[in-house]
Amino acid sequence: MDKTTVLSKKPLFLGLLFLLFILFAFLPLYGSVYSVILVTAIFMHIVLTVSWVIFSGPTGYISLASAAFFGVGIYTSAILGKTFPLPIVICFGALTSFCLALFVGALTLRLRGIYFSMFTFGLVLLIQQLLLWYEVNITHTRGRFVIVINNATIYYVMFAILAATILTAYFISRSKYGLALQSIGEDEEASAHTGINVTVLKTIIFAVSALFAGAAGAIMATRWTYIDPFIAFNPLFSFMPVLMAIFGGMGQFYGSIIGAVIFAYLQEMLITRFPYYYMLIFGIILVVVILYLPGGLVGLLQKWRKGDLAEKHANT
């Protein structure tokens, strides 16, 4: 019985995915400027959240370094944007973040729990302050202007990064390395006994997840046109992915995507409708989710579905 339901659901799911793809692929042609910008912002949040989940979801290492990787992408773009074409700038942004994560990961992934979280958050502030010092004392400016690019291009680049992020996350979670990451999250010592090179695997996956945050930063910089260390290394970009993943539910791969979409949209709505209370309302929603939906939105869905199944079984 299980098999037939799975079989009949798969084409439906793929069809839905295809429909969504078409819908978003042509959005700049029929949508308003506002909708293109809004969807770009939502895409950015999905990229940050999913890339965070690639590493932190299975391993349980709560990284707060997203803003650092995102910011490095932004600055790479601001510095190189005037001399190189866009694709190269994006690749450079991604690679710089990758290298930073490789270095930081090798140094800090021996730390566990709260120490790891604190260090990664410290990294964001460290880079922010270092850059500020550099800009004020060496270049004698504070911010930088970034070359402007039209909204549709930004949209398509972000769309491509999003697709790459989701595909990578999907393939990692399906591979033996996905299982290995999960086992590291469960019992690091026992997973070493099964022959997993724990430190190397953690560091590489951490770096891979930074790749996408860096790429997203590199393209978002062109949308903001002006950046300074406080805009680029805003700690909010460290917390948002964590909150969105919790909101959506980390147990399932698609949970983080759903969480990011709803959260990002909510944020956008609240900022425009209630500019003064938006943080307050945001906070309340979050508290409610953590208190009453420990498994996130996906957890709630699964609970309903399970209840459904249980009823069916009771009837037969």
């Binding site: 033996k176 299982l179 290995a180 999960q182 086992s183 469960e186 019992d187 010592e189 026992a190 997973s191 006994h193 099964t194 022959g195 997993i196």
Partner: peptide, 17 residues
């Protein structure tokens, strides 16, 4: 020391790493 929140099969597959 099995991995508590992984299924029996996943635990075994992990052994074949």
């Amino acid at each position: 020391k099995p991995f508590p929140d992984m299924s029996v099969r996943e635990n075994l597959e992990m052994g074949a790493y």
